[in-house]
C-alpha cells in the first residue's frame, strides 16, 4: 500500500521529512491583494467623506463665518447653547418628524399597495409597471420644481380641483401658507418614493414560495387571512430593514424642501437638514451649521440605537 492512514501510527511514505517550506512570499501577496483592490475606494472615502466629517464635527466648536473672516477661533459650546434659544431650530426639529414619518408612512402604504397589485399576472402588467415606476427616474430637483409648479394656481389645475372638492376654501398656493407649506414637499416625496418601496417589496413578495398560498387556499384561508398570516409575517424582515434605512435617508434628504419652499414661508417648512444647508449656503455660517449637523447626527445615532435595542428585545422575547 502506498498510502497510510495518518492516524495509524508512524508514517511510511516517501521516507523523507518534508523540508519546512515557507509560504511567506505567496501568503503576503494573498493577504495584500484585497487591499490593493479596495485602496482607491477607501482613500477616496477617507479624503472626501471621513476627513470632512471629522473636520465638520470640529467646526461645531468654532466660529467660521465666511462673511466675517476676522472673528475666528474656538468658542466651545457657544453654538450649542445658542441652539437652545433658536426658535427656527426647534421648529425645524418638529418639522423633521412630520416630514420624515409623514413621507415614510405614505410611501410605505402606497408602495405596499402597488407591490401587491403588481405582484399578480394580468394583461398589460409590464407597461403599467414601467409607467408607475417612472417618477423614481425623475431627477429629484425636477420632481421638486414640478410639484412646486403644480401647487401654483396660476398654471396648474390642482389648487382649483382642491378648492372644488372643498379641501381648500379658495384656489391658492399651499406652499405660501405657513400652516400647510410642509405638505407640498411631502406630496412630492411620496410621489418620488412610492416606486422605491414598490420595487423593494415586490422583490420580497416574489421570494415567498407560491405553494404557501396554495396550501392556505386549500386550508380555506380568505385573501385577507392570506395577507395577514402569510404575506406580512414573511415580508416583515425586508419591511423592517427598508423602513429603518429609509427613515434615515428621508431625514437627511433636503433637496425637495430647498427646491420647493426653501424652508419658507418664514421657516415654517424648514427641516433640520434644510436648515443646515441654508445656514451654510446662505449665511455662510459654517460653525453654526456644523453644530446643527452634529445634533442631527446624534438624533440619527440615538434612533438607530433604539431600533437595534428594540430588535434585540423582540428577538429575546420570541426566544431566538
Amino acid at each position: 500500500m502506498s498510502s497510510s492512514a495518518s492516524t495509524s501510527g508512524p508514517v511510511i511514505s516517501s521516507g523523507l521529512t518534508p523540508p519546512p517550506t515557507t509560504h511567506r512570499k505567496r501568503s503576503f501577496k494573498r493577504l495584500a491583494e484585497p487591499y490593493f483592490y479596495l485602496s482607491p475606494a477607501l482613500m477616496l472615502l477617507a479624503l472626501v467623506m471621513i476627513l470632512p466629517l471629522v473636520v465638520g464635527l470640529s467646526y461645531a466648536y468654532q466660529n467660521i463665518e465666511l462673511l466675517n473672516p476676522f472673528d475666528r477661533g474656538w468658542v466651545g459650546f457657544k453654538h450649542f447653547i445658542a441652539l437652545e434659544s433658536d426658535r427656527v431650530f426647534w421648529l425645524a426639529l418638529k418639522n423633521t418628524f412630520v416630514w420624515t414619518f409623514g413621507s415614510l408612512g405614505l410611501q410605505f402604504i402606497f408602495g405596499l399597495g402597488l407591490a401587491l397589485l403588481l405582484n399578480q399576472a394580468f394583461y398589460g402588467r409590464k407597461l403599467i409597471q414601467a409607467l408607475v415606476l417612472l417618477p423614481w427616474a425623475v431627477p429629484t430637483f425636477l420632481s421638486g420644481l414640478n410639484w412646486a409648479w403644480l401647487f401654483n394656481p396660476v398654471i396648474s389645475p390642482i389648487p382649483h380641483w382642491l378648492a372644488a372638492l372643498g379641501i381648500l376654501n379658495e384656489p391658492y398656493n399651499i406652499l405660501a401658507d405657513p400652516e400647510l407649506a410642509i405638505i407640498g414637499p411631502i406630496v412630492a416625496n411620496v410621489w418620488f418614493g412610492i416606486p422605491f418601496f414598490a420595487i423593494t417589496l415586490m422583490a420580497g413578495l416574489q421570494s415567498i414560495p407560491k405553494d404557501l398560498y396554495e396550501a392556505a387556499v386549500i386550508d380555506g384561508a380568505t385573501l385577507w387571512q392570506q395577507f395577514t398570516r402569510i404575506t406580512l409575517p414573511l415580508l416583515a424582515p425586508i419591511i423592517a430593514i427598508t423602513l429603518l434605512l429609509r427613515t434615515v435617508w428621508i431625514a437627511n434628504f433636503a433637496d425637495l424642501i430647498v427646491v420647493m419652499t426653501n424652508g419658507g414661508p418664514a421657516n415654517s417648512s424648514q427641516t433640520i437638514a434644510s436648515y443646515i444647508f441654508s445656514t451654510a449656503y446662505k449665511k455662510l455660517d459654517f460653525g453654526y451649521a456644523s453644530a446643527v449637523a452634529t445634533v442631527l447626527l446624534l438624533l440619527l445615532i440615538i434612533y438607530a440605537a433604539l431600533l437595534f435595542g428594540m430588535r434585540k428585545k423582540l428577538l429575546e422575547n420570541s426566544g431566538n
Binding site: P52, A251, A273, I276, F286, S290, A293, L297, L300
Partner: peptide, 20 residues
C-alpha cells in the same frame, strides 16, 4: 463603514468640503 457613510447626513460635510 461603507454602510455608515450612506447613513450620515451629507449636508453635514457640505461646509468642510467647501473649505477643504
Amino acid at each position: 463603514l461603507l454602510l455608515l457613510t450612506q447613513m450620515f447626513p451629507l449636508v453635514m460635510v457640505i461646509a468642510p468640503i467647501y473649505r477643504l
